[in-house]
Design a binder for these strands. Structure first.
Lengths: 258, 258
DNA sequence: CGTTTAATTGAAAGCAGTCAAACTATGTGG
DNA sequence: CCACATAGTTTGACTGCTTTCAATTAAACG
Protein backbone atom coordinates (compact mmCIF):
# COMPACT_ATOMS: atom_id res chain seq x y z
CA UNK A 1 0.00 0.00 0.00
CA UNK A 2 3.02 2.24 0.17
CA UNK A 3 2.63 2.64 -3.56
CA UNK A 4 -0.86 4.04 -3.14
CA UNK A 5 0.28 6.37 -0.38
CA UNK A 6 3.10 7.68 -2.54
CA UNK A 7 0.81 8.15 -5.50
CA UNK A 8 -1.83 10.02 -3.53
CA UNK A 9 0.75 12.14 -1.75
CA UNK A 10 2.01 13.25 -5.10
CA UNK A 11 -1.47 14.60 -5.79
CA UNK A 12 -2.22 16.28 -2.50
CA UNK A 13 -0.40 16.50 0.85
CA UNK A 14 -1.43 13.92 3.43
CA UNK A 15 -0.96 14.05 7.18
CA UNK A 16 0.59 11.16 9.06
CA UNK A 17 -2.73 9.78 10.25
CA UNK A 18 -4.11 9.89 6.73
CA UNK A 19 -1.13 8.00 5.40
CA UNK A 20 -1.58 5.55 8.21
CA UNK A 21 -5.24 5.06 7.35
CA UNK A 22 -4.34 4.21 3.77
CA UNK A 23 -1.71 1.74 4.90
CA UNK A 24 -4.29 0.07 7.12
CA UNK A 25 -6.88 -0.17 4.39
CA UNK A 26 -7.98 -3.77 4.21
CA UNK A 27 -7.01 -5.43 0.99
CA UNK A 28 -5.79 -8.68 -0.41
CA UNK A 29 -3.06 -9.41 -2.88
CA UNK A 30 -4.23 -11.04 -6.10
CA UNK A 31 -2.46 -12.15 -9.21
CA UNK A 32 -3.71 -12.38 -12.76
CA UNK A 33 -2.16 -14.27 -15.64
CA UNK A 34 -1.43 -12.52 -18.92
CA UNK A 35 -4.60 -11.66 -20.82
CA UNK A 36 -6.82 -12.50 -17.86
CA UNK A 37 -9.65 -10.03 -17.35
CA UNK A 38 -9.73 -7.99 -14.14
CA UNK A 39 -13.06 -6.45 -15.09
CA UNK A 40 -15.49 -7.07 -17.91
CA UNK A 41 -17.88 -4.69 -19.59
CA UNK A 42 -21.26 -5.11 -17.95
CA UNK A 43 -19.86 -6.18 -14.60
CA UNK A 44 -20.83 -4.40 -11.46
CA UNK A 45 -17.41 -4.48 -9.83
CA UNK A 46 -17.27 -4.31 -6.06
CA UNK A 47 -13.52 -4.08 -5.80
CA UNK A 48 -10.89 -1.85 -7.27
CA UNK A 49 -7.17 -2.41 -7.57
CA UNK A 50 -3.80 -0.86 -7.04
CA UNK A 51 -1.44 -2.22 -9.64
CA UNK A 52 1.67 -3.46 -7.89
CA UNK A 53 3.53 -5.32 -10.63
CA UNK A 54 3.05 -5.74 -14.34
CA UNK A 55 0.95 -3.89 -16.87
CA UNK A 56 -2.73 -3.79 -17.67
CA UNK A 57 -4.92 -2.06 -20.19
CA UNK A 58 -8.50 -0.94 -20.51
CA UNK A 59 -10.35 -1.52 -23.72
CA UNK A 60 -13.67 -1.43 -25.47
CA UNK A 61 -14.99 -3.58 -28.27
CA UNK A 62 -16.89 -1.72 -30.98
CA UNK A 63 -19.43 -3.10 -33.42
CA UNK A 64 -17.64 -5.29 -35.93
CA UNK A 65 -15.36 -6.62 -33.23
CA UNK A 66 -12.57 -4.08 -33.45
CA UNK A 67 -10.93 -3.27 -30.18
CA UNK A 68 -9.82 0.09 -28.87
CA UNK A 69 -7.45 0.25 -25.97
CA UNK A 70 -8.34 3.38 -24.06
CA UNK A 71 -5.69 3.34 -21.41
CA UNK A 72 -2.58 1.63 -20.17
CA UNK A 73 -1.88 1.07 -16.51
CA UNK A 74 1.47 0.74 -14.85
CA UNK A 75 2.74 0.18 -11.34
CA UNK A 76 1.07 2.40 -8.78
CA UNK A 77 -2.03 3.12 -10.85
CA UNK A 78 -5.41 2.96 -9.19
CA UNK A 79 -7.44 0.75 -11.49
CA UNK A 80 -11.14 0.79 -12.06
CA UNK A 81 -12.16 3.48 -9.68
CA UNK A 82 -14.49 4.60 -12.47
CA UNK A 83 -16.36 1.40 -12.82
CA UNK A 84 -16.50 0.36 -9.22
CA UNK A 85 -17.91 3.68 -8.10
CA UNK A 86 -20.46 3.96 -10.87
CA UNK A 87 -23.25 1.57 -11.74
CA UNK A 88 -21.93 -0.77 -14.41
CA UNK A 89 -18.54 -1.13 -16.01
CA UNK A 90 -18.50 0.20 -19.55
CA UNK A 91 -15.07 -1.13 -20.37
CA UNK A 92 -12.86 -4.17 -19.94
CA UNK A 93 -9.69 -4.24 -17.91
CA UNK A 94 -7.23 -6.89 -18.96
CA UNK A 95 -3.80 -7.95 -17.78
CA UNK A 96 -1.19 -7.10 -20.39
CA UNK A 97 1.46 -9.10 -18.55
CA UNK A 98 1.30 -11.21 -15.45
CA UNK A 99 -0.04 -8.80 -12.90
CA UNK A 100 0.00 -8.41 -9.14
CA UNK A 101 -2.58 -6.14 -7.55
CA UNK A 102 -3.83 -5.06 -4.17
CA UNK A 103 -7.55 -5.58 -4.32
CA UNK A 104 -9.68 -3.24 -2.24
CA UNK A 105 -13.40 -3.47 -1.54
CA UNK A 106 -15.14 -0.38 -2.82
CA UNK A 107 -17.06 -0.18 0.43
CA UNK A 108 -13.83 0.10 2.43
CA UNK A 109 -12.47 2.69 0.08
CA UNK A 110 -15.72 4.61 0.37
CA UNK A 111 -15.47 4.67 4.14
CA UNK A 112 -11.90 5.90 3.90
CA UNK A 113 -12.86 8.75 1.60
CA UNK A 114 -15.74 9.68 3.85
CA UNK A 115 -13.55 9.83 6.93
CA UNK A 116 -10.63 11.67 5.40
CA UNK A 117 -11.46 14.59 3.12
CA UNK A 118 -7.80 15.04 2.26
CA UNK A 119 -7.67 11.51 0.89
CA UNK A 120 -10.89 12.08 -1.01
CA UNK A 121 -9.31 15.16 -2.49
CA UNK A 122 -6.21 13.25 -3.55
CA UNK A 123 -8.31 10.51 -5.13
CA UNK A 124 -10.35 13.09 -6.98
CA UNK A 125 -7.18 14.62 -8.35
CA UNK A 126 -5.87 11.23 -9.34
CA UNK A 127 -9.11 10.63 -11.24
CA UNK A 128 -8.77 14.01 -12.92
CA UNK A 129 -5.26 13.16 -14.07
CA UNK A 130 -6.53 9.98 -15.73
CA UNK A 131 -9.16 12.14 -17.31
CA UNK A 132 -6.49 14.46 -18.67
CA UNK A 133 -4.64 11.49 -20.14
CA UNK A 134 -7.84 10.35 -21.82
CA UNK A 135 -8.31 13.75 -23.33
CA UNK A 136 -4.79 13.74 -24.74
CA UNK A 137 -5.44 10.31 -26.23
CA UNK A 138 -8.50 11.62 -28.03
CA UNK A 139 -6.33 14.29 -29.61
CA UNK A 140 -3.64 11.73 -30.39
CA UNK A 141 -5.97 9.33 -32.17
CA UNK A 142 -8.12 12.04 -33.71
CA UNK A 143 -5.62 14.51 -35.12
CA UNK A 144 -2.18 13.00 -35.46
CA UNK A 145 -0.84 10.78 -38.21
CA UNK A 146 0.53 7.35 -37.50
CA UNK A 147 4.12 8.43 -37.05
CA UNK A 148 3.19 11.16 -34.66
CA UNK A 149 0.78 8.96 -32.71
CA UNK A 150 3.42 6.33 -32.25
CA UNK A 151 6.04 8.80 -31.14
CA UNK A 152 3.58 10.29 -28.71
CA UNK A 153 2.65 7.05 -27.00
CA UNK A 154 6.29 6.05 -26.74
CA UNK A 155 7.06 9.35 -25.05
CA UNK A 156 4.13 9.00 -22.69
CA UNK A 157 4.97 5.47 -21.65
CA UNK A 158 8.60 6.33 -21.24
CA UNK A 159 7.87 9.24 -18.93
CA UNK A 160 5.27 7.38 -16.93
CA UNK A 161 7.59 4.45 -16.45
CA UNK A 162 10.32 6.74 -15.25
CA UNK A 163 7.95 8.35 -12.79
CA UNK A 164 6.99 4.91 -11.54
CA UNK A 165 10.67 4.13 -11.12
CA UNK A 166 10.51 1.36 -13.70
CA UNK A 167 13.01 2.23 -16.36
CA UNK A 168 16.58 3.31 -16.68
CA UNK A 169 17.49 6.33 -18.70
CA UNK A 170 16.93 5.69 -22.38
CA UNK A 171 15.53 2.16 -22.42
CA UNK A 172 12.11 1.06 -21.50
CA UNK A 173 10.15 -2.11 -21.59
CA UNK A 174 7.17 -2.11 -23.89
CA UNK A 175 5.36 -5.33 -23.11
CA UNK A 176 2.77 -4.89 -25.85
CA UNK A 177 2.37 -6.78 -29.07
CA UNK A 178 2.19 -4.63 -32.17
CA UNK A 179 -1.46 -5.53 -32.43
CA UNK A 180 -2.11 -4.14 -28.95
CA UNK A 181 -0.14 -1.05 -29.82
CA UNK A 182 -2.32 -0.68 -32.89
CA UNK A 183 -5.44 -1.05 -30.82
CA UNK A 184 -4.22 1.73 -28.56
CA UNK A 185 -3.46 4.02 -31.49
CA UNK A 186 -6.37 3.23 -33.77
CA UNK A 187 -4.05 1.61 -36.32
CA UNK A 188 -3.65 -1.89 -37.73
CA UNK A 189 -0.78 -4.06 -36.54
CA UNK A 190 0.65 -4.01 -40.05
CA UNK A 191 0.87 -0.26 -40.04
CA UNK A 192 2.26 -0.24 -36.52
CA UNK A 193 5.06 -2.39 -37.78
CA UNK A 194 5.85 -0.05 -40.65
CA UNK A 195 5.62 3.00 -38.42
CA UNK A 196 8.02 1.57 -35.86
CA UNK A 197 10.41 0.71 -38.65
CA UNK A 198 10.16 4.26 -39.87
CA UNK A 199 11.10 5.70 -36.51
CA UNK A 200 13.92 3.20 -36.22
CA UNK A 201 15.27 3.89 -39.69
CA UNK A 202 15.43 7.58 -38.85
CA UNK A 203 17.46 6.77 -35.78
CA UNK A 204 14.90 8.06 -33.27
CA UNK A 205 14.51 4.72 -31.53
CA UNK A 206 16.08 1.28 -31.45
CA UNK A 207 14.17 -1.91 -30.84
CA UNK A 208 15.23 -5.16 -29.28
CA UNK A 209 12.51 -7.69 -28.61
CA UNK A 210 10.05 -5.82 -26.44
CA UNK A 211 12.52 -3.21 -25.34
CA UNK A 212 12.58 0.24 -26.85
CA UNK A 213 15.52 2.56 -26.62
CA UNK A 214 14.83 6.18 -27.33
CA UNK A 215 17.91 7.53 -29.04
CA UNK A 216 16.72 11.03 -29.76
CA UNK A 217 14.37 12.12 -27.03
CA UNK A 218 14.20 15.71 -28.22
CA UNK A 219 13.41 14.71 -31.77
CA UNK A 220 10.89 12.08 -30.72
CA UNK A 221 8.94 14.58 -28.64
CA UNK A 222 8.92 16.88 -31.65
CA UNK A 223 7.64 14.17 -33.95
CA UNK A 224 5.04 13.12 -31.40
CA UNK A 225 4.08 16.65 -30.44
CA UNK A 226 4.61 15.48 -26.89
CA UNK A 227 4.29 18.07 -24.18
CA UNK A 228 3.98 16.36 -20.82
CA UNK A 229 1.74 18.98 -19.24
CA UNK A 230 -1.24 16.67 -19.45
CA UNK A 231 0.44 14.12 -17.20
CA UNK A 232 0.36 16.73 -14.44
CA UNK A 233 3.65 15.68 -12.96
CA UNK A 234 4.75 19.09 -11.78
CA UNK A 235 2.67 18.71 -8.71
CA UNK A 236 2.42 21.52 -6.16
CA UNK A 237 3.53 18.88 -3.74
CA UNK A 238 6.75 18.16 -5.48
CA UNK A 239 8.70 18.21 -2.27
CA UNK A 240 6.85 15.19 -0.94
CA UNK A 241 6.63 13.48 -4.28
CA UNK A 242 10.28 13.98 -4.99
CA UNK A 243 11.12 11.32 -2.51
CA UNK A 244 9.80 8.74 -4.89
CA UNK A 245 12.50 6.99 -6.80
CA UNK A 246 12.70 8.19 -10.33
CA UNK A 247 10.38 11.09 -10.10
CA UNK A 248 13.08 13.67 -9.87
CA UNK A 249 14.64 12.40 -13.02
CA UNK A 250 11.34 12.35 -14.79
CA UNK A 251 10.60 15.89 -13.79
CA UNK A 252 13.97 16.94 -15.04
CA UNK A 253 13.19 15.21 -18.30
CA UNK A 254 9.81 16.83 -18.47
CA UNK A 255 11.25 20.22 -17.81
CA UNK A 256 14.00 19.76 -20.32
CA UNK A 257 11.31 19.44 -22.95
CA UNK A 258 9.81 22.83 -22.45
CA UNK B 1 -27.27 26.53 -8.38
CA UNK B 2 -30.30 24.30 -8.47
CA UNK B 3 -28.85 22.82 -11.61
CA UNK B 4 -25.71 21.78 -9.78
CA UNK B 5 -27.71 20.32 -6.93
CA UNK B 6 -29.81 18.28 -9.33
CA UNK B 7 -26.80 17.07 -11.20
CA UNK B 8 -24.95 16.00 -8.07
CA UNK B 9 -28.03 14.38 -6.59
CA UNK B 10 -28.31 12.27 -9.68
CA UNK B 11 -24.84 10.94 -8.86
CA UNK B 12 -25.19 10.36 -5.16
CA UNK B 13 -27.90 11.06 -2.58
CA UNK B 14 -27.57 14.34 -0.70
CA UNK B 15 -29.12 15.31 2.60
CA UNK B 16 -31.03 18.55 3.00
CA UNK B 17 -28.16 20.37 4.64
CA UNK B 18 -25.80 19.28 1.90
CA UNK B 19 -28.17 20.56 -0.75
CA UNK B 20 -28.45 23.76 1.21
CA UNK B 21 -24.68 24.12 1.36
CA UNK B 22 -24.44 23.82 -2.41
CA UNK B 23 -27.16 26.40 -2.92
CA UNK B 24 -25.30 28.77 -0.61
CA UNK B 25 -22.01 28.29 -2.40
CA UNK B 26 -20.73 31.72 -3.30
CA UNK B 27 -20.63 32.33 -7.00
CA UNK B 28 -21.22 34.95 -9.60
CA UNK B 29 -23.06 34.79 -12.88
CA UNK B 30 -20.90 35.42 -15.93
CA UNK B 31 -21.61 35.50 -19.63
CA UNK B 32 -19.33 34.72 -22.53
CA UNK B 33 -19.88 35.59 -26.17
CA UNK B 34 -19.67 32.92 -28.85
CA UNK B 35 -16.11 31.67 -29.37
CA UNK B 36 -14.85 33.45 -26.27
CA UNK B 37 -12.43 31.39 -24.21
CA UNK B 38 -13.40 30.39 -20.68
CA UNK B 39 -10.02 28.79 -20.09
CA UNK B 40 -6.84 28.65 -22.10
CA UNK B 41 -4.17 26.00 -22.21
CA UNK B 42 -1.41 27.03 -19.86
CA UNK B 43 -3.70 28.99 -17.54
CA UNK B 44 -3.77 28.27 -13.87
CA UNK B 45 -7.52 28.69 -13.43
CA UNK B 46 -8.79 29.63 -10.01
CA UNK B 47 -12.46 29.32 -10.83
CA UNK B 48 -14.65 26.63 -12.28
CA UNK B 49 -18.08 26.91 -13.84
CA UNK B 50 -21.53 25.44 -13.89
CA UNK B 51 -22.93 25.83 -17.37
CA UNK B 52 -26.38 27.41 -17.07
CA UNK B 53 -27.22 28.28 -20.67
CA UNK B 54 -25.63 27.60 -24.01
CA UNK B 55 -22.97 25.18 -25.14
CA UNK B 56 -19.23 25.02 -24.73
CA UNK B 57 -16.47 22.71 -25.84
CA UNK B 58 -13.00 21.71 -24.73
CA UNK B 59 -10.25 21.41 -27.26
CA UNK B 60 -6.57 20.95 -27.84
CA UNK B 61 -4.38 22.22 -30.62
CA UNK B 62 -1.84 19.75 -31.96
CA UNK B 63 1.38 20.47 -33.84
CA UNK B 64 0.52 21.73 -37.29
CA UNK B 65 -2.40 23.69 -35.93
CA UNK B 66 -5.12 21.07 -36.20
CA UNK B 67 -7.69 21.19 -33.47
CA UNK B 68 -9.29 18.30 -31.62
CA UNK B 69 -12.43 18.91 -29.65
CA UNK B 70 -12.29 16.52 -26.72
CA UNK B 71 -15.62 17.23 -25.11
CA UNK B 72 -18.87 19.09 -25.43
CA UNK B 73 -20.61 20.69 -22.47
CA UNK B 74 -24.29 21.33 -22.07
CA UNK B 75 -26.53 22.86 -19.43
CA UNK B 76 -25.80 21.56 -15.95
CA UNK B 77 -22.26 20.41 -16.70
CA UNK B 78 -19.54 21.22 -14.23
CA UNK B 79 -16.80 22.74 -16.36
CA UNK B 80 -13.11 22.72 -15.77
CA UNK B 81 -12.97 20.89 -12.52
CA UNK B 82 -9.98 19.10 -14.03
CA UNK B 83 -7.93 22.13 -14.72
CA UNK B 84 -8.82 24.20 -11.73
CA UNK B 85 -7.96 21.43 -9.30
CA UNK B 86 -4.73 20.46 -10.99
CA UNK B 87 -1.69 22.60 -11.64
CA UNK B 88 -2.04 23.98 -15.16
CA UNK B 89 -4.78 23.68 -17.73
CA UNK B 90 -3.82 21.36 -20.55
CA UNK B 91 -6.77 22.25 -22.71
CA UNK B 92 -8.87 25.16 -23.88
CA UNK B 93 -12.49 25.69 -23.00
CA UNK B 94 -14.40 27.80 -25.48
CA UNK B 95 -17.98 29.00 -25.74
CA UNK B 96 -19.74 27.30 -28.64
CA UNK B 97 -22.70 29.64 -28.36
CA UNK B 98 -23.37 32.59 -26.11
CA UNK B 99 -22.99 31.10 -22.68
CA UNK B 100 -24.16 31.85 -19.17
CA UNK B 101 -22.28 30.26 -16.29
CA UNK B 102 -22.15 30.29 -12.55
CA UNK B 103 -18.53 30.91 -11.71
CA UNK B 104 -17.23 29.39 -8.50
CA UNK B 105 -13.89 30.00 -6.82
CA UNK B 106 -11.99 26.74 -6.54
CA UNK B 107 -11.12 27.62 -2.98
CA UNK B 108 -14.81 27.79 -2.03
CA UNK B 109 -15.54 24.56 -3.80
CA UNK B 110 -12.59 22.97 -2.01
CA UNK B 111 -13.96 24.02 1.37
CA UNK B 112 -17.35 22.61 0.45
CA UNK B 113 -15.88 19.25 -0.51
CA UNK B 114 -13.85 19.17 2.66
CA UNK B 115 -16.87 19.84 4.86
CA UNK B 116 -19.28 17.49 3.14
CA UNK B 117 -17.93 14.07 2.20
CA UNK B 118 -21.20 13.22 0.46
CA UNK B 119 -20.75 16.16 -1.88
CA UNK B 120 -17.14 15.20 -2.47
CA UNK B 121 -18.37 11.74 -3.37
CA UNK B 122 -20.91 13.11 -5.84
CA UNK B 123 -18.31 15.36 -7.44
CA UNK B 124 -15.93 12.44 -7.75
CA UNK B 125 -18.62 10.44 -9.47
CA UNK B 126 -19.41 13.30 -11.77
CA UNK B 127 -15.73 13.46 -12.72
CA UNK B 128 -15.72 9.72 -13.33
CA UNK B 129 -18.67 10.02 -15.68
CA UNK B 130 -16.81 12.62 -17.74
CA UNK B 131 -13.95 10.21 -17.75
CA UNK B 132 -16.20 7.46 -19.10
CA UNK B 133 -17.38 9.78 -21.86
CA UNK B 134 -13.76 10.51 -22.77
CA UNK B 135 -13.04 6.86 -23.00
CA UNK B 136 -15.97 6.29 -25.34
CA UNK B 137 -14.73 9.15 -27.50
CA UNK B 138 -11.34 7.49 -27.83
CA UNK B 139 -13.07 4.39 -29.13
CA UNK B 140 -15.27 6.47 -31.39
CA UNK B 141 -12.41 8.33 -33.02
CA UNK B 142 -10.03 5.39 -32.98
CA UNK B 143 -12.11 2.52 -34.27
CA UNK B 144 -15.22 3.69 -36.05
CA UNK B 145 -15.56 4.93 -39.61
CA UNK B 146 -16.91 8.37 -40.38
CA UNK B 147 -20.55 7.32 -40.72
CA UNK B 148 -20.49 5.46 -37.46
CA UNK B 149 -18.67 8.24 -35.65
CA UNK B 150 -21.18 10.77 -36.78
CA UNK B 151 -24.16 8.63 -35.83
CA UNK B 152 -22.59 8.03 -32.45
CA UNK B 153 -22.06 11.67 -31.57
CA UNK B 154 -25.57 12.54 -32.72
CA UNK B 155 -26.98 9.86 -30.44
CA UNK B 156 -24.87 11.02 -27.53
CA UNK B 157 -25.81 14.65 -27.89
CA UNK B 158 -29.45 13.78 -28.35
CA UNK B 159 -29.57 11.73 -25.17
CA UNK B 160 -27.59 14.22 -23.13
CA UNK B 161 -29.82 17.04 -24.25
CA UNK B 162 -32.89 15.08 -23.30
CA UNK B 163 -31.43 14.39 -19.88
CA UNK B 164 -30.74 18.08 -19.48
CA UNK B 165 -34.33 18.78 -20.44
CA UNK B 166 -33.28 20.66 -23.54
CA UNK B 167 -34.90 18.93 -26.45
CA UNK B 168 -38.27 17.63 -27.49
CA UNK B 169 -38.64 14.11 -28.70
CA UNK B 170 -37.00 13.68 -32.08
CA UNK B 171 -35.49 17.09 -32.72
CA UNK B 172 -32.47 18.57 -31.18
CA UNK B 173 -30.43 21.66 -31.64
CA UNK B 174 -26.88 21.12 -32.83
CA UNK B 175 -25.26 24.51 -32.54
CA UNK B 176 -21.98 23.40 -34.09
CA UNK B 177 -20.53 24.25 -37.46
CA UNK B 178 -19.54 21.30 -39.59
CA UNK B 179 -15.96 22.26 -39.00
CA UNK B 180 -16.44 21.97 -35.25
CA UNK B 181 -18.16 18.64 -35.72
CA UNK B 182 -15.19 17.51 -37.75
CA UNK B 183 -12.83 18.63 -35.03
CA UNK B 184 -14.80 16.59 -32.53
CA UNK B 185 -14.75 13.50 -34.73
CA UNK B 186 -11.27 13.71 -36.17
CA UNK B 187 -12.64 14.41 -39.66
CA UNK B 188 -12.44 17.32 -42.08
CA UNK B 189 -15.42 19.59 -42.51
CA UNK B 190 -15.74 18.45 -46.11
CA UNK B 191 -16.10 14.87 -45.04
CA UNK B 192 -18.49 15.81 -42.26
CA UNK B 193 -20.70 17.38 -44.87
CA UNK B 194 -20.68 14.26 -47.00
CA UNK B 195 -21.29 12.01 -44.03
CA UNK B 196 -24.28 14.04 -42.86
CA UNK B 197 -25.70 13.93 -46.35
CA UNK B 198 -25.25 10.18 -46.35
CA UNK B 199 -27.22 9.77 -43.14
CA UNK B 200 -29.89 12.11 -44.46
CA UNK B 201 -30.14 10.34 -47.81
CA UNK B 202 -30.73 7.07 -45.98
CA UNK B 203 -33.54 8.67 -44.05
CA UNK B 204 -31.91 8.30 -40.64
CA UNK B 205 -31.90 12.02 -39.93
CA UNK B 206 -33.26 15.25 -41.35
CA UNK B 207 -31.48 18.57 -41.17
CA UNK B 208 -32.81 22.07 -41.05
CA UNK B 209 -30.30 24.81 -40.37
CA UNK B 210 -28.69 23.80 -37.12
CA UNK B 211 -31.49 21.50 -36.07
CA UNK B 212 -31.25 17.76 -36.45
CA UNK B 213 -34.24 15.47 -36.42
CA UNK B 214 -33.55 11.84 -35.77
CA UNK B 215 -36.03 9.91 -37.86
CA UNK B 216 -34.86 6.41 -37.12
CA UNK B 217 -33.49 6.30 -33.62
CA UNK B 218 -33.13 2.52 -33.57
CA UNK B 219 -31.28 2.45 -36.85
CA UNK B 220 -29.06 5.39 -35.92
CA UNK B 221 -27.95 3.70 -32.71
CA UNK B 222 -27.13 0.62 -34.75
CA UNK B 223 -25.08 2.58 -37.26
CA UNK B 224 -23.33 4.46 -34.47
CA UNK B 225 -22.86 1.42 -32.28
CA UNK B 226 -24.36 3.56 -29.57
CA UNK B 227 -25.01 1.91 -26.24
CA UNK B 228 -25.62 4.55 -23.61
CA UNK B 229 -24.09 2.62 -20.73
CA UNK B 230 -21.06 4.90 -20.72
CA UNK B 231 -23.22 7.92 -19.93
CA UNK B 232 -24.10 6.25 -16.63
CA UNK B 233 -27.62 7.55 -16.58
CA UNK B 234 -29.15 4.59 -14.82
CA UNK B 235 -28.03 5.92 -11.53
CA UNK B 236 -28.67 4.03 -8.33
CA UNK B 237 -30.35 7.18 -7.23
CA UNK B 238 -32.89 7.19 -9.95
CA UNK B 239 -35.69 7.98 -7.56
CA UNK B 240 -34.23 11.36 -6.72
CA UNK B 241 -32.97 12.05 -10.19
CA UNK B 242 -36.26 11.17 -11.80
CA UNK B 243 -37.72 14.40 -10.59
CA UNK B 244 -35.60 16.23 -13.08
CA UNK B 245 -37.49 17.21 -16.16
CA UNK B 246 -36.69 15.03 -19.09
CA UNK B 247 -34.66 12.42 -17.35
CA UNK B 248 -37.42 9.88 -17.19
CA UNK B 249 -37.93 10.11 -20.89
CA UNK B 250 -34.25 9.80 -21.55
CA UNK B 251 -33.99 6.75 -19.38
CA UNK B 252 -36.88 5.21 -21.21
CA UNK B 253 -35.11 5.95 -24.45
CA UNK B 254 -31.91 4.50 -23.12
CA UNK B 255 -33.64 1.37 -21.92
CA UNK B 256 -35.52 0.92 -25.16
CA UNK B 257 -32.17 0.59 -26.85
CA UNK B 258 -31.05 -2.46 -24.96
C1' DC C 1 11.91 -29.64 -31.55
C1' DG C 2 7.48 -28.91 -33.02
C1' DT C 3 3.73 -25.73 -32.60
C1' DT C 4 1.74 -21.53 -31.89
C1' DT C 5 2.02 -16.63 -31.76
C1' DA C 6 4.04 -12.44 -33.30
C1' DA C 7 6.63 -9.69 -36.67
C1' DT C 8 7.59 -8.56 -41.35
C1' DT C 9 6.97 -7.79 -46.30
C1' DG C 10 4.51 -6.80 -50.76
C1' DA C 11 0.78 -5.54 -53.70
C1' DA C 12 -3.71 -3.67 -54.30
C1' DA C 13 -7.87 -1.25 -52.73
C1' DG C 14 -10.44 2.27 -50.24
C1' DC C 15 -11.73 5.78 -47.03
C1' DA C 16 -10.91 10.17 -45.94
C1' DG C 17 -8.03 14.28 -47.02
C1' DT C 18 -6.70 18.16 -49.96
C1' DC C 19 -7.50 21.78 -53.03
C1' DA C 20 -10.39 24.86 -55.27
C1' DA C 21 -14.56 26.76 -56.57
C1' DA C 22 -19.51 27.70 -56.23
C1' DC C 23 -23.30 28.38 -53.60
C1' DT C 24 -26.09 29.80 -49.51
C1' DA C 25 -27.01 31.81 -45.40
C1' DT C 26 -26.28 35.54 -42.10
C1' DG C 27 -25.22 39.99 -40.87
C1' DT C 28 -23.93 44.98 -41.49
C1' DG C 29 -23.99 49.59 -43.07
C1' DG C 30 -25.67 52.91 -46.20
C1' DC D 1 -34.57 47.54 -47.76
C1' DC D 2 -30.86 46.65 -50.70
C1' DA D 3 -25.68 45.89 -51.51
C1' DC D 4 -21.92 44.08 -49.92
C1' DA D 5 -19.06 41.32 -46.79
C1' DT D 6 -18.34 37.36 -44.21
C1' DA D 7 -18.94 32.82 -42.51
C1' DG D 8 -20.55 28.38 -43.44
C1' DT D 9 -22.13 24.68 -46.61
C1' DT D 10 -21.83 22.04 -50.72
C1' DT D 11 -19.68 19.92 -54.82
C1' DG D 12 -16.05 17.82 -57.83
C1' DA D 13 -11.63 15.98 -59.03
C1' DC D 14 -7.57 14.16 -57.42
C1' DT D 15 -4.21 12.50 -54.03
C1' DG D 16 -2.51 9.77 -50.30
C1' DC D 17 -2.33 7.51 -45.91
C1' DT D 18 -3.81 3.51 -43.96
C1' DT D 19 -6.16 -0.81 -44.53
C1' DT D 20 -6.78 -5.24 -46.41
C1' DC D 21 -5.30 -9.57 -47.91
C1' DA D 22 -1.98 -12.97 -48.23
C1' DA D 23 2.32 -14.98 -47.64
C1' DT D 24 6.80 -15.42 -45.30
C1' DT D 25 9.97 -15.16 -41.59
C1' DA D 26 11.14 -14.92 -36.78
C1' DA D 27 10.32 -15.53 -31.99
C1' DA D 28 8.18 -17.66 -27.94
C1' DC D 29 6.61 -21.50 -25.64
C1' DG D 30 5.75 -26.14 -23.80
Amino acid sequence: MTLLVDRLRSRSPLAAEEREAILNLEHRIEEFETLRYLVREGDKPSRCYVLLEGYAYRHKIVAGGARQIVGIHIRGDLIDLQNSMLDVSDENVQAMTRVKVASIAVASLGRLLESFPAIANAVLKEALVYSAIFSEWIANVGRRDSRSRMAHILCELSVRQKVAGLSADGDFHLPMTQEQLGDALGLTSVHVNRTLQGLEKDGLISRNKRTIRINEWEALTRVGDFRPTYLHLQSVHGAAADRQAGLTMALRTAQAIR
